[in-house]
Amino acid sequence: MRDDNVCKGILVPGLPHPLLCPEKNEGWQRVRDAYEKARVELEESGAEILVLYSTFWPSILGHQIQAYPEPEWTYVDEEFHDLGSIDYKFRMDPEFAELAVTKCKERGLHARTVSYYGFPIDTGSIVALKLLNPENKLPAIIVSSNMYANRAESIVLGKSVRDAIDASGKKAAVVVVSALSNRLHTVEIDPKEDRIHSLKDHEWNSKFLEYLEKGRLEDVSQLSRQFHNEARVPKVVSFKPFWIMASIMGQNNLYDGNVLAYEPICGTGAAVVTLTPAEDTAGDLEYDEDDPEFYKGDREVLDFYDQPGMGPLEERDGD
């Protein structure tokens, strides 16, 4: 194992079924069991803080980071309200949240902490924290998913969080809460009949999992745009979780990947995967994207300051 301040990366799904009713479907139970295995890995990793990035928490005004010390509520999912209520009480690290915001601002991002009683923590974060950190042994922060952010901004966000981890002197585990393919069944189904919504979704999920099992996190990150086009319902502009995860974890393929589960939950691709820093690279990197260090705002196609010179028009068009 390679010594790294980010000692574990974990991908988990965020729908509430593995928490509230795993017994209704064998696959949901396997996801629940995989959550338990990931919890044990996490506990043995030496992590001192959890950094959650949740695709279930959209933000608009830059990037929000949860900093209320002990958020507590009885939560009901807006879609799956008939599965029951979830009581929660979590432990956040306000000091680390402030540090992360400072680091975001140093890299040009608009960011702020949120610290309000009753703030509606999202389903994905609740499920992940309840199952990975049930006794609140580790303090956590939760990072929102800005709905307009594209790759450059997401990479810089990940680097900012990494800056905070390094500056804190703490060992951290990164948890991204996201489905792979995210197409839900749009009709009621018998839980026993659950399946990935389409073969195409399944094939793309399998391709991503094949890469993740080999520890090829940066390659997965680089394929995110393609995955968004092929296997995601375009509710937001891009598929960001692996950009964030790779950016926080160092933008390389130096990991031992462990796919603990891959199952359908209401049609979506639900995977539990852990990544542990390793000495050996999994293979050639396929880097072809920019590697921005600072965020300078969106670059528009027609921004003249960035546009290459077109040269003078020819006097005649050849007719």
Binding site: W57, V114, Y116, Y117, G118, D122
Partner: peptide, 13 residues
């Protein structure tokens, strides 16, 4: 209950 806006919690509780 209490409604806290997830996007604008600074202005709506």
């Amino acid at each position: 209950s209490l409604s806290v806006d997830p996007i604008f919690p600074n202005i709506f509780r």
